[in-house]
Amino acid sequence: MIKIYNIPGLKNAGPSHWQSRWENQSKDITRIIQDNWEQPDCQRWITRIDQVLGSENLNDVVLVAHSVGCAAVLNWFNNFRKPVKGALLVAPSDVDRPDYPPYITGFAPMPLIKLPFKSIVVASTNDHVVSPERARLFAERWGSQFIQLHNAGHIEDQAGFGDWPEGMDLLNQLR
């Protein structure tokens, strides 16, 4: 059976965020809980991801990441080299931006390595944390399918992404 792990970004995913809604709709989706959602630290986040996934058959695991959670997934893989079945990487934060928040530490430089598993990057033309060009570059370097949404903001509940059935369709492609 495929197990899906949600890896939210900064401040976690609130109850109306699509990641939370997906968890409420499916017993197969579990959130990886970080100890500090307000000041993400890469080493702590990727260590937590590795602890949670340590007992899983990674061939049956799909990761669903949002924002800096995407950088956590890439850093986790870059450090531990443990392939999973697939990853849905939504609105990846550009951790290399000069104006990136200083309280989000250790995620830069963004690993630009080819992932040995199927992945899909979903990005918006007007996301405030990543330019369309950088999102496309990430997808190309990671070997990911690239889906660009028009004027979708940061692809979160504030931008109108509640249940986000189109995202669930993408997730189902990775199962």
Rank of each mutant, 00 (worst) to 15 (best):
P102D: 15
G86C: 06
D96H: 10
A71P: 07
R134K: 15
H66L: 01
I147D: 01
P92V: 00
N79H: 14
G143R: 07
V52G: 04
N59E: 15
L115V: 09
I113T: 15
V61E: 03
S55I: 12
I147Q: 05
I49W: 04
D99N: 15
F77E: 02
P116W: 05
L58V: 07
D94S: 12
A135D: 05
W45F: 06
I113N: 14
G69E: 04
P98W: 09
K85M: 10
G106N: 09
S144F: 07
R136P: 01
G86F: 09
P83V: 02
V121A: 04
P111V: 06
P132T: 05
P116K: 08
L89D: 00
W76D: 01
R134E: 10
L89A: 09
Y103M: 12
T105S: 13
L74S: 07
V64T: 09
A139R: 04
F107Y: 15
V90F: 00
P109R: 11
R136S: 14
N126K: 09
I49F: 06
R136M: 13
V64I: 14
H66T: 02
V73Y: 01
V62W: 02
I113V: 15
S67K: 01
F107D: 00
Y103G: 05
E133V: 14
I120S: 03
G54K: 11
K85C: 11
I46P: 03
S144I: 04
S131H: 10
L53N: 10
S144V: 10
L74W: 03
M110R: 00
D99R: 13
D96C: 10
C70N: 06
P111S: 08
N78T: 08
S93R: 00
V62R: 05
G54F: 05
A108K: 11
P111D: 07
A87Q: 09
P92W: 02
N78M: 08
G143S: 10
P101G: 09
V62S: 05
V121L: 00
L112H: 12
L89F: 08
P132K: 10
